[in-house]
Design a protein around this nucleic acid. Sequence first.
RNA 1: GGCCCCUUGGUCAAGCGGUUAAGACACCGCCCUUUCACGGCGGCUACAUGGGUUCGAAUCCCGUAGGGGUCACCA
Length: 478
Amino acid sequence: MRVRTRFAPSPTGFMHVGNLRTALYAYLYAKHFDGDFILRIEDTDRERYVEGAVDVIYSTLQKAGIGHDEGPDKDKGYGPYIQSERKPIYGKYAELLVEKGGAYYCFCDKERLESLKDENGVARYDKKCLRLSKEEVAERLKRGDPYVIRQNIPLDGVSEYEDMVYGKITVPNADMEDGVLLKSDGMPTYNFANVVDDHLMEISHVIRGTEYLSSTPKYNLMYDAFGWERPKYMHLPPIMKDAQHKLSKRYGDANFEDFIEKGYLPQAIVNYIALLGWSPKGNEEKLSIQELIQEFDVDGISKSGSIFDEQKMRWLNAQYIRETTEEEFLELATPWFEKSVIKGKYDYKLFASLLHSRVEILSEIPDMVAFIEDFSDYGISLYEHKKLKIDLNIAKQAVETSIEAVEPLTSFSVEDVHNALVAKAEEKGLKKGQVLFCARLAVTGKASTPGGAAEMAALLGKEETLKRLKFSRSLFNA
RNA sequence: GGCCCCUUGGUCAAGCGGUUAAGACACCGCCCUUUCACGGCGGCUACAUGGGUUCGAAUCCCGUAGGGGUCACCA
């Protein structure tokens, strides 16, 4: 049997990382078996439809590297792939299901349904309309009475199925309601549309969140009533915000697009979410999408929810950043340099090489780079360094030495500055570390900087370097 | 509340009757080093709980507790 999986989001806004992970797993599973991954848009609820949401779905999938084989834009003969365009199909199958006894027409209005509620406010439909005669139904239909079509669920017995992740799931039939399959506007509910579509599109494995775990028996009852073969099911544990809340779409920044804007690389996000709820056989956690396809296996999927840990995603992102070449990183960093105080000044290339091993997410760049412009009076106690045996006296000499070393330079590359500083240190009988450390400090006024004395000086240029060194020298005399 | 499901360190997790209970993030320490970072090495901390079954249970069974999901003309 050919493996065909699908991702069936409803276009209600941004792409939540939980949704994205569901799409990822469905994609990985299909590709692992060289099967097809289908995109279907579930827009049967006209009230929740959000303009532009479909575009977000396309662009997110595309950026994440999750390519679909079929979808609204790629009809391979199973279309349409947008549910609102399939309305006639559902009507037809709903009638067929009525004929087969798996469903029935219901004319009950809101008021009556309301009156069925118990003390907990839970309503259970009482199958009243199931008892209507064929003639009566036909007559009311002819009269144009509003109606819905409900699923006819047995009153007793149990329904069972084998979930690929959770194992055997057993639900008493009495606990399932005769849910609405076809709404009064003629649109199907999810409960019905997913069954019809999954069958018609020949979906072999239904992969979705656990919220459907206990309603799946209802769908199986429909497959059975139609005489269709049931698909395999793989339900996925939730991604949590904390121990008791699922990651919420409306709170915080749990959607893909926001992470991209924060300077996360798509590969890192995908890699991280792949690991939330699934673990590979080996110990390697940094996996490309190709490797994920290779390694993906149902056995590795866990049953309990996982808390989203941005810290770990940051770490993974840093791994991906370090793996880029100098050129690639410069390209990634440049837009962020442009947003910072160094815009148009300094050597982007040199700055990029300094930040390459220091940046975890790109949005840190403006802050990491701001120090260069921020030079003013600072406390000279910063010079004291036990291990390098630097006291204020040594520091003063080191700064003086730095000035002497740098002054005659005609070429000011990192290497030039470094060599000059080291040579002069030796000449003056100072340890090179002492001069280098003091020069760096003198030139930046900062306890720590991304790079050493030579890099900082090269970044600033000869003129500014000397200016700052002399200013620092004056601090010792104050 | 009924029903379904889940429970290993702060977090992600391996484990599927016999292990010194992996690994990763975070944290701490050391090394490398002109600061910071990278990198290397090391450390810290876990089987929710009570009963069984068994020569032996993190692993199997039952109960308890805690948590999640679901009970819509939403998906």
